[in-house]
Structure formats: structure tokens, C-alpha cells
Simulated scan of single mutants.
Amino acid sequence: MTTKLETLELALQTALGEGAVISSALGEVTVVVKAADYLAAMLTLRDDPALKFDQLLDLCGVDYSTYGEGAWDGLRFAAVSHLLSLDYNWRVRVRVFAPDDEMPLVASIAGIWRSANWYEREAFDLYGILFEGHNDLRRILTDYGFIGHPFRKDFPISGYVEMRYDPEQKRVIYQPVTIEPREIIPRVIREETYGMK
């Protein structure tokens, strides 16, 4: 007797073929597709009658540059989507890696699921992932004058610029960050009999 998870894996393998790497762990199925096959795979996941993934629950960017404590040697940026099929009551995670780390670019799926619009804007804003075909790819969380992408692993913790109100100019100004980096080591005080009664 096959489980629901095995049925889903078989349906995914049949629909997507050899262009996708399908794995399962902890009761969740993950599909990894190449950037060139991403748009076609997502259309298949939505339209195939054996799958019917009609809802995009989430899409986020991921920076794998320090994944596995620096042991990762694959591509750096990925867009990860979570899909739901209401008819079959199953979920799948789809991961696509951008082939170029200097200019991460993958196809937009906003034309397939309208909810991808703001998710893709967020991934662009925070990670710098570009979505080809997105009709309004602009910042959504940071200011329009913001420099860089704050969720990238190489983004400085203090940022590049700071914003403050200047009473002489009577307006908000941007200036280079003036925080001096320092390490704070917490002081731990323990009683000799802590936890013993």
C-alpha cells in the first residue's frame, strides 16, 4: 500500500520527468528544477490534472553562501516556493537556483499565481534576485534610496548609510554609518549551587 507522500512523489515524477530532482524528508516533498525549466515546471504543477497545485502559499529568496558552515559549493541564490493543492490536500516545495551569482535571475511566476507578485518583489528587495517578466519589480520593504540587499549574507550588519533628521536643514538626510564595530562579550554570573536543592 502506497502512502500519500509516495503517491505525490510518483505524480510529480510522471508530470515533470527527468528535468526535476524530487526528494522527501520529514514528511515534505521538495522539487528542485533548473532555471531554464522553472516556468514550464510551474505551469505543469498548476495545470496537470494529477497534481492541481492551484495555490502559491509562499515564495522567498535564500542565500546559500554560508550554508552548511561554509561547506556549500553550489549556486548561491535560490527562489523557494510552497504550493498547495486543494483538491488533493497536498503540498510541495519547489526550489530553483539562479544560474549567475553576480546577477541572480529566474523567471517570474506572477503570471501563473497572482500572489507571487509581492513575494517576488520581497525576494528582489531583500536578496537582489531578479524575476524576468515581472511587470513591477521594485522595492517593497526598504526605502527607494536604500543601498544593497539586507538579507544577503555579505551585507554589513550596520548597513552602509543611516538616516536622521537634520534640524538645520529641516529635512531627513542620509549619511555614511558612524557606528564603530565592536564585540560585546556577555558577562555570565552563576551561583555555585544553581539548580541544586
Rank of each mutant, 00 (worst) to 15 (best):
R93E: 05
D58K: 10
S23M: 14
M1P: 05
P181V: 09
A40G: 04
A71Y: 11
R152V: 10
A78W: 00
G128S: 08
T193S: 02
R91F: 11
K170T: 08
E102S: 14
L137I: 04
P186W: 01
E122T: 11
I173A: 03
A35T: 09
Y160T: 13
V96A: 05
A11Y: 00
E132W: 12
V33L: 00
E180K: 15
P99E: 10
L43T: 02
G128F: 07
E132R: 10
K170D: 15
V106G: 06
L8C: 03
R182E: 06
D54K: 05
D37T: 06
L84M: 13
A15W: 08
M163V: 07
E18Y: 02
V32Q: 07
L5S: 11
L8N: 01
A78V: 04
D37V: 00
D166N: 15
R152I: 05
A123W: 03
I157A: 15
D37A: 07
E18G: 14
V80D: 00
T7Y: 03
F131S: 11
E69F: 11
D54I: 03
W118I: 12
V92Q: 01
S115A: 14
L137P: 02
V33R: 01
S158Q: 15
G145K: 08
A98T: 09
S23K: 13
L43D: 12
A71C: 08
G159A: 02
D143Y: 12
G74Y: 00
I109P: 02
D143A: 12
L8Y: 07
K170Q: 14
Q175T: 13
P167A: 14
E168F: 10
F131T: 07
R187V: 15
A11K: 07
T142W: 10
R76I: 08
E18T: 14
W113H: 11
F77K: 03
D154C: 05
E120I: 01
Y160S: 05
Q13K: 15
L5M: 09
H82N: 13
R95V: 14
V62P: 04
L56Q: 00
R182Y: 09
P49V: 08
Y64K: 09
W118H: 12
K4W: 01
